[in-house]
Amino acid sequence: MNIIKIEHIAKIYQLGTQEVKALADVSLKLDKNEYVAIMGPSGSGKSTLMNMLGCLDTPTSGIYEFTGKNVSEMTDNDLAKIRNQEIGFVFQTFNLLARSNALHNVELPLIYAGISAQERKERAEKALADVGLEDRIHHKPNELSGGQRQRVAIARALVTNPSIILADEPTGNLDSKTGEEIMGLFNELHEKGNTIILVTHEEYIAEHAVRIIRLRDGLVESDDVVRKRYIPIKNNLAKN
């Protein structure tokens, strides 16, 4: 079964008297353990598609099925539950709570899942260890480097064991070396069996993915599987 099945979805915004078609007609299918990059110039609709995929927004028309459930007609509360349990978000600007330490930031989704304090702590510690931050647990975001902050955000995305990880320009605020480290982490996660969707406009970031979907003017321009599986980064660079 597909994790994500989108059929002819459209999203139309009303800007004053003008209708803006952010997404015209997009159909997609995603399977478990896929590693997809969604690309496109600004205005192509990739952010709208990402919001759609992340259940932050519902389409104007069309059908979105997430693990077999029809998301397009869900209520706000049901959407919140799906986001909480099935989707791990990684943002360009990290979006950590500035006044809370790494541990509390990672615990946050578990609070909304109604999990007890003890279990939260254990799972958050494990998630932080998985991204290599076991010795930074009690540091606040301003005591961490950009790369470490993004790792905290990734730990927060992983802690609920979501069906997909949705990363919106995850390296956009990082220098290229740190960016490559973060991409290395995503590659590792993919190898471990996670499903990853990257939204980016950088070719070299997208090249980590196995499948690249290009959007233009709210339509799918191309949808190619560029390789059978992820190829470790060094070989990848050597090939170019």
Binding site: N77, A80, P109
Partner: peptide, 16 residues
Amino acid sequence: TKEIGLRKAIGARRRT
């Protein structure tokens, strides 16, 4: 606002 957006994105309901 941004914090509220984040909390909602990771699963906080309106009521929460």
